[in-house]
Amino acid sequence: MDLNAPIAIRVRGICNSFGDQVIHDGVDLDVRNGEILGVVGGSGTGKSVLMRTIIGLQRPIAGEIEIFGEPMTEEDSDAQLDLRRRWGVMFQGGALFSTLTVAENVQVPLREFYPGLTPQLLDEIAAYKVVMAGLPANAGPKYPSELSGGMKKRAGLARALALDPRLLFLDEPTAGLDPISAAAFDELTMSLSKTLGLTVFLITHDLDTLYAICDRVAVLADHKVVAVGTIPELLATDHPWIQSYFNGPRGRAAQTAVDRHMAKGA
């Protein structure tokens, strides 16, 4: 495993299907080290399934996945375990453990992978991670059922960051957040990615997020990745879905917002 490999995730020829419903038919994708890659696609095109496939929760029918140059396999070898602690995942639904407090949720992966840590250090680590994910300090001892939707997302992020991963998978982190919290979350993702040198695989429907923080965007349509590139590069393609996505009313609104912002900054 080479943490500085130029390609963090290499996906080749992934095919997935449920029964006779084909989801993926030969998906190829490279995620570069240190970038924030946005993944977009219509609802139900298999973005979440692709993420689950990459992290090994879903077994593809065909295809290969390499993470930091290490092929993913089913076995529980040391190399595979080592790979697993290199990533943090934030699920679409939060998936917090409902019987544990937020801080205890953050401690779960730490306890699992590093049983030698002292309770005091564990508590301290959980404390700064909770604050780092942008939660107020009093959220630590709260249970997931006592959190608002936005706080749940941040708690999910705190848990995803628990192991100091090099690779962060975020599934619709800003869905259901108010615009201010969504922007704050974007900023947080961006600054964490820069400070911690994270590679981020970011599934989103949020055009503002795409414009604000993504280095490149991959488009999932017709069971494949039909295009990857910066937004201007994507705009230059003539795929109908991409065109209606970025040039629809919302797409244009987000774009003007960015232009205005740039003009003000300049």
Binding site: E104, A127, K129, V130, M132, P141
Partner: peptide, 17 residues
């Protein structure tokens, strides 16, 4: 960078009620 990140995140947080 990391040191300044963690020192900014230093606050007393309870883990359990």
């Amino acid at each position: 960078r990391l040191m300044s990140l963690v020192s900014r995140s230093e606050e007393s947080v309870r883990v359990r009620p």
